[in-house]
Nucleic acid binder design. Sequence first.
DNA 1: CAGTGGTCTAGACCACTGG
DNA 2: CAGTGGTCTAGACCACTGG
Lengths: 235, 235
Amino acid sequence: MVNAIKIPQFEVIKQYVRGHINSGRWAVGARISSENELAVSFSVSRMTARRALQELAQEGLLTRAPGLGSFVAEPVLAKPSLEIHNIVAIAQSKGTYSCQVLSLEQIPADAELADLLRFEIDQSVYLARFLHFDGSKAVQWQEIYVNPKVAPAFLKQNFTKVVPDEYLEWIAPSGHVHHQVGAVLARPSQRRALGLTEDSQTACLQITRVCSRGSIVASLSKLVHPASLYQLGTT
Amino acid sequence: MVNAIKIPQFEVIKQYVRGHINSGRWAVGARISSENELAVSFSVSRMTARRALQELAQEGLLTRAPGLGSFVAEPVLAKPSLEIHNIVAIAQSKGTYSCQVLSLEQIPADAELADLLRFEIDQSVYLARFLHFDGSKAVQWQEIYVNPKVAPAFLKQNFTKVVPDEYLEWIAPSGHVHHQVGAVLARPSQRRALGLTEDSQTACLQITRVCSRGSIVASLSKLVHPASLYQLGTT
DNA sequence: CAGTGGTCTAGACCACTGG
DNA sequence: CAGTGGTCTAGACCACTGG
């Protein structure tokens, strides 16, 4: 006996059921054997058969209903999703991160901004622009609007030592973060900052990030990345 | 007694443990009560206490190890992810979808394409270009390379009646789908097809999608969307 | 060694569904 | 009504970890 790894009984039953579903022997919507039937077939207790079906239900292969039975679930093609990897965090972990402060100011919110931040019009907002580097390469242009009530000392920070987003997360952990991804053309100032020369390079991925807690918006960032440097991927 | 909904015992224990973790009374990494201890404390059987801890472990709040115990897990901030919503499927469900075939051809794979498709160089590949409409508006430009071995009859389909991707999924269900999102500038032909006039509108979101099964690549699509029409979002 | 979590049993009671 | 899944019990044996 080489490598006699013990396979749990509930796993055997799961494989059996999975096999019948994947091969199509049990059609979508069809009722499958009950816990009791499986328990008898496999000579196990009901709790063991139950565990198999339960886990398959949690994996989305089965639907179960008291009084009715277990049914082959509609095959839900795993909805593809993209991880947003933070290019700044990556540079930091490599130790090659640096940040250039382009501007720090306090402005009154115009109508559009007030709407986005759930502010009153003309309420004062911090506006900062940063250029984030990985080594000598500018990888992200950031424009961030900050709620002064959440981070009153924001403009006084030394952003060559503290990453803006980390500072905000530190003093006011955000409950919800909303992301939106789109494509934009680099504006001339952005093009210069990011070192984009040819017209063909000016396509940028823009991530709009809103950090909020409850009904209070803490910050809104626009992150612009040269398309040549930044891609979102999945499998 | 109004609305005396029965709360299962394992749920009570889960709430108890969750409370101690969220409030910080049990620090990250700390060992928590064992199954046996909880069973005694709550006057339940070990299987019930076990279920509570097991489910919390699956939710990522606990780490468990035989012989050692259960520990408060590192709080993993839910990594933000983007759903890729299929603009074509949306138009279909609205009943306003239509498709225009721009080209259908068979070409030999050049070096780059052969690499992407895991093909031999000069092996024959189907290449098709489509323009997908939602009503009278062109919402997606698609360029798709198809493996003739997977879908030999691909070029003979009537794509005003069948969506290319659905046809492929139908005759050869793909095991893995890989997506990549980037920003591109619309090429002149794409700009014309998508009805983009001003230069400022030519920023496009491009999704590269590779469908494969095992080591065989079935198709590779480049989907180009005007940035004004297509955004990816999350919460 | 005593304690941990992982698997498993043979029972039990329950609310619920269909015929 | 008999059957279903949901909850629960009081036992059991196991491989594993630390002291």
